[in-house]
Write a protein that binds this DNA or RNA. Structure first.
Lengths: 225, 225
DNA sequence: AAAAAAATGTATCAATTGTTACAAATAGTA
DNA sequence: TACTATTTGTAACAATTGATACATTTTTTT
């Protein structure tokens, strides 16, 4: 029997208690798979035939370049599910190669069994729909952000979003280089615009602290008035 | 009673025959709404309270930059559903403004009723999961596309994707303005780059037909070699 | 505390794209 | 066909960003 403590931490199983879960899991097939560091869990292009949930450890999603170089796309840690947005849909294949970053334990259940569970339990269905929707929403927000054209607007957007409604200053957790990557611009370009915005007294930057001097103008910037 | 012919063409209702469908639809509430060209169907930020399926016509999903610029994200045509990925999830709001591109008829059903249907019918559930997944997959591809920086690369990418492996020429279905919106650039800029690429004998454009002259170079462009 | 590494500020010049404007070509319609 | 609206081609100039380089500051390591 599976250790349900890890599983219920996963968003998909939230709000379902152990008794209910064990009743559900009795009716379907599932496996617990163990991988060691650097093991390949799935290859890019492989069909996704199972729901995977990482119970322990973390994996890395990688793309292998034409010249054999490896580009890391993202890390996924327990207790997150894997590639839920690719379980169904027209192209249900792994978009990346999944590699174990350390010792990894994975809960695996065939799609059809999972579908059965979704039918048996409303909470599970709602959870899963929420999970997959949130993923799409995340992508959509990313898309919105990328469609902002000028660096200045991106900065305003980023700062105001971080600041929320209440605060005058925010603490940056990233280096300029990381921010620049996030914005999809070069580091010197970002620094230049930050510096301009300081000269215009929109913000003050002191080390990693950004203080908002003129919230109105920042807002107008976003709205491009 | 609704004309089921349009509805069953929608991926969500695929494989469900008229008898079955009418039995299902009897148990829930739904509406048919009609819009004219340029009507706003939903504003970005509006809560998604209903499942929408386009029965007739087509709509455009747009981000309105505050300076009045419009970035078209995509066109959705009958019989596709609308914003399915935003029915659930933490932020169930329209990510884009939805505008009618012509005379549009839309089928609308409250979320709770729809959830009820998902429980009643496995095929429907599977269809819906497929739909929402495809959506996430689409967004993911879109994100990749938007992260391409130069117009030249975007064009190469677009043309090669349209062309697939076999053909030497493709037929554009969009005006330059629509393409430019899709790319998130201005129309003259797009035209300029297209013209340059013609001069460099990468492509030939005759009216709406684009002929690929140098596939290798186009490929290299994408891969940034 | 000293040395090394990383991050930041800034400058210059090149490349790309935006803005605006207008003529030419094409498509749509009476 | 003739007229109109839409689409396309192109040009000149402005604005933004990229690329590169290097000094300075800050952080991390020894």
């Amino acid at each position: 029997m599976i250790d349900y403590i890890s599983l219920k931490r996963c968003p998909v199983f939230q709000g379902i208690d152990e008794k209910e879960a064990s009743l559900l899991l009795e009716q379907v097939h599932y496996q617990i798979k163990v991988f060691k560091k650097h093991d390949i869990i799935a290859l890019a292009g492989d069909q996704v035939k199972n729901l995977y949930i990482i119970l322990k450890g973390s994996v890395s999603g990688e793309i292998h370049d034409y010249s054999g170089n490896t580009v890391k796309i993202e890390d996924i840690e327990a207790p997150r599910p894997l590639a839920t947005a690719f379980l169904f849909g027209s192209e249900n294949r792994f978009p990346v190669t999944v590699v174990a970053r350390n010792d990894v334990t994975i809960f695996s259940m065939p799609i059809d069994d999972f579908l059965k569970l979704l039918h048996l339990n409303t909470r599970l269905l709602k959870n899963f729909l929420n999970s997959i929707s949130s993923r799409a929403q995340f992508l959509s927000r990313k898309l919105n952000f990328l469609s902002i054209k000028t660096i200045r607007e991106k900065i305003a957007n980023y700062i105001l979003q971080k600041a929320g409604d209440r605060f005058h200053s925010i603490e940056l957790k990233n280096t300029q280089q990381e921010l620049a990557d996030l914005f999809g611009v070069t580091r010197p370009s970002l620094a230049r615009v930050l510096s301009e915005m300081q000269k215009e007294k929109l913000i003050i930057i002191d080390k990693r602290t950004v203080t908002i001097l003129n919230k109105e103008k920042l807002n107008k910037l976003i709205r491009n008035i």
